[in-house]
Write a protein that binds this DNA or RNA. Structure first.
Lengths: 119, 119
DNA sequence: ATATAAAGTATCTTTAAAGATACTTATAGG
DNA sequence: CCTATAAGTATCTTTAAAGATACTTTATAT
């Protein structure tokens, strides 16, 4: 990027962590809501299936963004939390949030002015 | 995010702009390489098909991230460039690049230590 | 009259992500 | 001994993104 060589672009690395319909939401729930159980997350992410949630959590765990702790009890108890490393994503997510918010407002304004022009 | 309400999370707005196997690369080419013709981009993004390139460019144009200028000549000449608004993505991409780069190095170190442990 | 060039369209096929649904496991409590 | 419970698996189907390939347009140079 500094060398103006897009082949050296590492943006995809970050994108790869974040891509997945539910991943940003999962990360933010754990980042700001603290430790959560599987069923807590499933409740919070209304509409996600167990299979999808499992897949997303396993991928995030593999990347060491989240931690999975299993308590050997019956019925099972599994707790998910953000790792220290996962927390390093916070500034990135924050900036993306800011830009995304501004982008949304821009789009609303655009629609509004289209509406006005059609009056 | 500030209110710790992930439903208000706007990260997806940004992600939506960036998602697409080639979009970050297209944006960065135009952001750092300046105005480019369709065929320039196709050459730069080795392996992309015309259909895919067209789709990605049209979506970015629709979001006003890039500008498409058609010169009415034969054979056609079409130039793509980043918009002023598109340039506002630069800090976001920069941070994503930094994090992605660090993440890559971390993964390489991890592999290295696995290798050492297996010696 | 024909071939060429740039920037696409139009279709069809492949692949990957996500969703729906049913099943499993092991034990504590009634 | 039967049931309920949490955290999943296992399969199958749907949907969306991307890729492959062939075709189109039209003024100009040959």
């Amino acid at each position: 990027m500094e060398k103006k060589d897009p082949d050296l672009c590492k943006v995809e690395n970050t994108l790869h962590i974040l891509i997945g319909k539910w991943k940003p939401l999962i990360i933010m729930h754990l980042m700001f809501g603290g430790t959560k159980r599987f069923s807590d997350l499933q409740r919070a992410l209304a509409g996600i299936t167990t299979k999808t949630l499992t897949t997303q959590l396993r991928e995030l765990e593999e990347q060491e963004i989240i931690l999975r702790v299993v308590y050997p009890v019956v019925p099972p108890r599994v707790e998910y939390s953000i790792t220290e490393y996962g927390m390093t994503l916070q500034p990135v997510l924050h900036l993306m949030h800011e830009w995304g918010n501004a982008h949304l407002e821009r789009q609303l304004n655009k629609e509004q002015s289209t509406f006005n022009n059609n009056q």
